[in-house]
């Protein structure tokens, strides 16, 4: 099965073949992949090189934590890739991204309005939780398409507070 995978703007075409073999950008590797425990801890022998990592699944991407480095990885299988190509989009992060509350808390204030253009890492919401004021930042650049909360609101973990869409 063929996959189109993107990390830090680099694209890899990965074909998972028979007999513990994979082909990455036309280069063949032997693999032995083992799932170690719940929580996404895995072990991979890649041409006998031993790698251990934590792999977490998110709505539209995977996070791989290996040797103290976090990688955001976007994976599409061949079919999804063809469909996306037909729609004129490829391996991007989707059209709308929600800023979610990482924990329950109270909104101190929102710093953006619908229609505002935001940069990646721009502060958008101040959330009080664990006795601290926490700055929530935009996960991507774009335009604010929805602000679902206002100051004083109590929010649950995972609640979508603000939605950021593509810039026209």
């Amino acid at each position: 099965m063929k996959y189109y995978t993107k990390v830090n703007d680099k694209e890899y075409i990965i074909e998972i073949g028979p007999d513990n073999e994979i082909v990455v950008n036309d280069e063949k590797y032997s693999i032995d992949f083992q799932y170690l425990a719940t929580g996404g801890m895995v072990s991979l022998l890649l041409n006998n090189r031993s790698l251990e990592a934590v792999v977490d699944e998110y709505d539209d991407h995977w996070e791989v934590l290996a040797e103290g480095e976090l990688y955001n990885v976007f994976v599409q299988d061949e079919r999804a890739f063809r469909l996306a190509q037909a729609r004129g989009t490829t391996l991007d992060t989707g059209h709308e991204t929600g800023v979610k509350a990482p924990m329950p808390g109270v909104i101190i204030r929102t710093l953006v309005d619908v229609g505002d253009v935001v940069e990646r890492n721009e502060k958008v919401v101040i959330l009080e939780s664990m006795k601290m004021e926490n700055e929530l930042r935009a996960p991507r650049e774009g335009v604010v398409t929805a602000v679902n909360v206002s100051a004083g609101a109590s929010v649950e973990k995972g609640q979508v507070l603000i939605v950021i869409g593509d810039r026209e």
């Binding site: 830090n8 895995v42 991979l44 299988d77």
Partner: peptide, 19 residues
Amino acid sequence: ADQEMEAAVLATLMAHHHN
């Protein structure tokens, strides 16, 4: 970040597993 290829392989294997 020098393990991009490895990260790509790991995530792809997990995605494949889920599929």
